[in-house]
Amino acid sequence: GTEIELESKNGQREHYTATSEDEARKIIEKAVRRGIKRIELRGASEQLIRDMQEIAKQIGLQYRTDGSL
């Protein structure tokens, strides 16, 4: 699965493990709508990382991946 670590603007951290790319995408989209400061992805697919970079650029988000592409 993909591990997703979120940090909201007030510094609250949340951790999710998505079993599918679809689920990961839903978690990320929800977080973005809620207003999130930072997202870290571990074990994400190349496609998901590309999507994440696109989203991050659009809304000026900090993100990090573990680089295991």
Rank of each mutant, 00 (worst) to 15 (best):
R50Q: 12
R38T: 10
G35R: 03
L48F: 06
I36T: 04
E5R: 13
E21K: 02
A56Q: 03
Q53T: 09
R25E: 01
A44H: 03
E46R: 06
S68P: 06
E14K: 04
S20V: 03
D22P: 07
E5Q: 11
Q47H: 05
I4G: 00
Q58M: 07
R34D: 13
S8R: 12
E29D: 07
A24I: 08
E46D: 10
R38F: 14
E46S: 11
E3A: 07
T2Y: 11
S68Q: 08
L6R: 00
L6W: 10
Q47Y: 03
I27N: 00
D51W: 14
I28D: 00
I49F: 06
E23C: 09
E14M: 08
G43I: 01
K30E: 14
L48A: 02
I4K: 00
I49D: 06
E23V: 10
K57R: 12
Q53E: 13
D22L: 07
R25H: 05
T19G: 10
A56K: 02
E5Y: 14
V32D: 00
T65D: 15
R64M: 15
R64Y: 15
I55E: 01
Q53P: 03
G43A: 04
S68H: 07
I27V: 05
Q58F: 04
L6C: 08
K37M: 10
E23S: 04
E14D: 08
I27A: 01
G60R: 04
Q12G: 12
Q47W: 02
Q12D: 14
E14V: 06
G60E: 15
S20L: 03
A44W: 03
E21T: 08
R34W: 03
I36F: 05
M52S: 02
I55G: 00
I36H: 01
S20K: 05
R33V: 13
R13P: 03
R64T: 15
K57Y: 08
T2W: 09
S45N: 03
E7V: 10
A56W: 04
R64L: 15
K26D: 11
N10E: 13
Y16G: 02
R33A: 13
I49L: 11
T19S: 08
G1A: 13
K30P: 01
I39Y: 00
L41K: 00
T17M: 08
R34Q: 13
K37E: 08
Q53Y: 08
G35V: 01
I39M: 06
I27S: 01
G1E: 12
R25C: 05
